Simulated assay, not measured.
Amino acid sequence: MSARDLIVLGSASAVPTKSRNHNGYLLRWDGQGLLFDPGEGTQRQMSLAGVSASDITWICVTHFHGDHCLGVPGIVQRIARDGVAHPVDAAFPASGARYWERLRHASVFHDTGVIRERPVSGDRAVLADGPFTLVARRLSHPVEAYGYRLEEPDGVTMLPDELAARGVRGPLVRRLQRDGRVAVDGRTVTLDECSVPRPGQKAAFVMDTRLCEGVAELADGVDLLVIESTFLGEDAALAAEYGHLTSAQAARVAADAGVRHLVLTHFSERYGTDDEHRFRDEAAAVFDGEITLVRDLDRVPLPRRRAARA
């Protein structure tokens, strides 16, 4: 299986700091590369992280505040300059189409035809349904904003002992997986007899929002939740006013949703490096699973698959 991991290209909020670039997150998934919220400087951060424009197959913008989209011109122009040949789907709130158009054509360059625009509207939209499902869900922010959820279909894990006991071997195994049944020595062997269900992996990306139904739906049962934690609990009133989450709120979402790995990011510049441990401490008081408080250029692997169900 190809790499499945998150590469953090930036983790600041509205104002970048000396140690944190504007937002940017590349989720690599079996040869696909989903670039979420490319903020200012994302193109350079990609170079530092050792990834290229050819790694990108999706650009997913949650909303059109600058720290989530000002890197779009550089990314699009790099895709064109590097001659990326495969299609690159671009998802963004339809209500911000005029901002997308300005960013997409921000300066003179030899344009590319590989960008396929996928404007999102309504409370919920399915953007892809193939090797994985990609869903956008409306969130609660002063401007229209969406979160994204990527979900692999459930599969099966084959049981070698059961296959051997029924004489299923070689090409018959693949046929059994494809068709759900095969004939062996005059007997029909079914897939259920020789396998157990294997839950598909899931990841969610939740940026600027207050607590709302959309957050809970996106986070439900995911293996990896990348979520903003702009404020500490002492500034919860500011978080509510500006449409953001605190670290403790993000952790409560993870705990209630059965998340396996909680990734905290999008930190306000009002806090210094000496405050960073407080984000983790507040989250750990609520959520007892794995927590990563990211730094720029971190690589966060998806958790190992959940065990197959007998």
Rank of each mutant, 00 (worst) to 15 (best):
T17Q: 02
R20H: 04
H22A: 13
G39K: 04
E40H: 12
G41C: 04
S54P: 00
T62E: 13
V76T: 05
V76K: 02
Q77K: 14
R81D: 13
D82N: 13
D82K: 10
A85Q: 15
D89L: 13
S95V: 14
S95D: 10
D111W: 09
D111C: 08
I115K: 02
R118Y: 03
R118T: 10
P119Q: 00
V126S: 14
G130W: 00
F132M: 08
T133P: 00
V135Q: 14
G147F: 01
G147V: 02
Y148I: 07
L150R: 02
P153N: 01
P153V: 01
P160T: 01
D161S: 14
A165Y: 05
V168S: 07
V168H: 05
V168W: 05
G170T: 03
L172G: 06
R174G: 15
R174K: 13
T188N: 03
V189H: 09
T190N: 01
T190L: 07
T190V: 04
T190E: 09
L191T: 09
E193A: 15
E193H: 08
Q201W: 07
Q201Y: 05
A203L: 11
A204I: 11
F205A: 08
M207I: 04
D208L: 12
D208R: 09
L211S: 10
L211D: 13
C212H: 03
E217M: 11
V222I: 09
V222H: 01
D223E: 14
V226E: 01
I227M: 07
F231T: 00
L232K: 03
G233I: 01
E234M: 12
L238E: 14
A239S: 03
Y242R: 13
G243A: 07
T246Y: 06
T246P: 01
Q249N: 05
Q249W: 04
V253W: 00
D256C: 07
R260M: 08
E269W: 09
D274L: 11
E282N: 05
A283W: 00
A285R: 15
D288M: 05
D288I: 02
D288R: 12
G289H: 06
T292K: 07
V294Y: 11
V294I: 10
P301W: 03
P301G: 13
A307T: 14
A308W: 02
A310M: 09
